[in-house]
Computed example of a mutant assay.
Amino acid sequence: METYLGIDVGSVTTKLALLDGDDELISYTYLPTQGKPIDMVQEGLRQIKRQLSGDAEICGAATTGSARYLAGVIVGADLVKNEITSHAVAALLYYPDVQTIIEIGGQDSKITIIRDGIVIDFGMNTVCAAGTGSFLDHQALRLNMSIQELSRRALDSQNPVRIAGRCTVFAESDMVHKQQMGHQVEDILYGLCQALVRNYLSNVGLGKEIKPPAVFQGGVAFNQAIIKALQEELGIDIIVPPHHEIMGAIGAALL
């Protein structure tokens, strides 16, 4: 059986996806990068190998992500491609009429505008991390809760509190202030999710024409509170692919 490997190495997570000749996903891994991209790529390859059947043969490999060139050298990749292209190709496979791709990762965020199956515009975050997953991770750590608990409790909010989300430092001090004022933790947490969405749209999405269908990709798409905040802010439905966290790797494999 002919298969094709895609590898997406980001600053926070490393993803590998293996597709067959019919572009069906047959195996994947999702690992924390932990500042060791070489080790994680090698571990991902070992996991993929254990999942393969005896007659499977990897006929091509492509890499993407912030460490795509390093990963390309490690595996002898046939192709090294940027994240914008990889995520767009994957989204178009599953949603051919997609017009907007929202991608929020651990330390970077992107938006891709597609019309008639062609990428016509894109945006990426600057050095600020306030519109990325690390923004939420930092606050969850400060509150001594997991990111899963943060998401779950944020959805219980009845009266969200507006949090200053332009900067992680300001957000933290504002959260402390709101707690001292007696606001419910759930309301503060959902306010934090709303702050991330506002920051993303005013920074990465600035000047972009966001139209449905809109697909939400990246690890932060696990967070149901962020999905809710996006839908409320944009006034449109947000589509989350079943394998949203590995779409970059899937796109690389398709290429």
Rank of each mutant, 00 (worst) to 15 (best):
Q148C: 00
F216A: 01
Y95E: 04
I227H: 10
S11M: 07
V176Q: 08
A62V: 03
G165N: 03
L18S: 07
D187C: 01
L5V: 09
L16M: 04
A249W: 06
L92M: 13
R46C: 00
F135H: 02
A61R: 15
A67N: 14
L201G: 09
L16V: 06
L45H: 10
G65I: 07
T168W: 05
A253I: 07
T64N: 11
A129T: 13
H177F: 14
A62H: 09
A56R: 09
A140P: 13
P32R: 01
A249R: 05
E57R: 14
K211T: 10
L92N: 03
H177D: 02
N159P: 00
A90L: 01
Q148L: 09
Q179F: 15
L255K: 08
A140H: 12
A253V: 08
V127K: 15
G235M: 00
K49Y: 10
Q51N: 12
A56E: 14
V240M: 01
H243K: 12
E209G: 00
T29Q: 11
V119G: 08
R50S: 15
A214T: 13
V215A: 05
D55H: 11
K15I: 01
G106I: 03
F216L: 01
G117W: 08
S146T: 15
D121K: 13
T3E: 00
G165W: 05
S157R: 03
E57K: 14
T29H: 08
L196R: 09
S109V: 05
Q194H: 12
T63E: 04
L234E: 06
L196E: 05
I7W: 11
R50Q: 14
I26P: 14
L136V: 02
G219N: 10
P242Q: 10
Q148F: 12
P213K: 12
L18V: 14
M40V: 01
P213A: 10
G21E: 13
P213Y: 11
A61P: 04
R50T: 11
N159T: 13
G105V: 01
S146V: 02
G117I: 05
V220R: 07
I84Y: 06
L52V: 00
Y94R: 06
Q224P: 00
E24M: 10
A229W: 11
D237Y: 03
T29W: 04
P241N: 03
G10P: 10
T112S: 04
S11E: 07
S66C: 09
E232H: 10
P212G: 13
G131H: 06
F216R: 02
E57P: 01
T112I: 15
G205Y: 12
G205H: 11
L70A: 07
T168V: 13
I147A: 02
D116T: 03
I238Q: 02
R166F: 12
H138W: 02
A164N: 11
Y69F: 13
K208R: 15
G218T: 02
R153Q: 14
S11L: 07
N144I: 00
L19C: 06
F222L: 03
T64W: 13
G60H: 12
E245I: 07
V75L: 05
S173N: 14
P212M: 00
I101T: 08
D22M: 03
I120R: 12
R162Q: 12
V75S: 07
L155K: 08
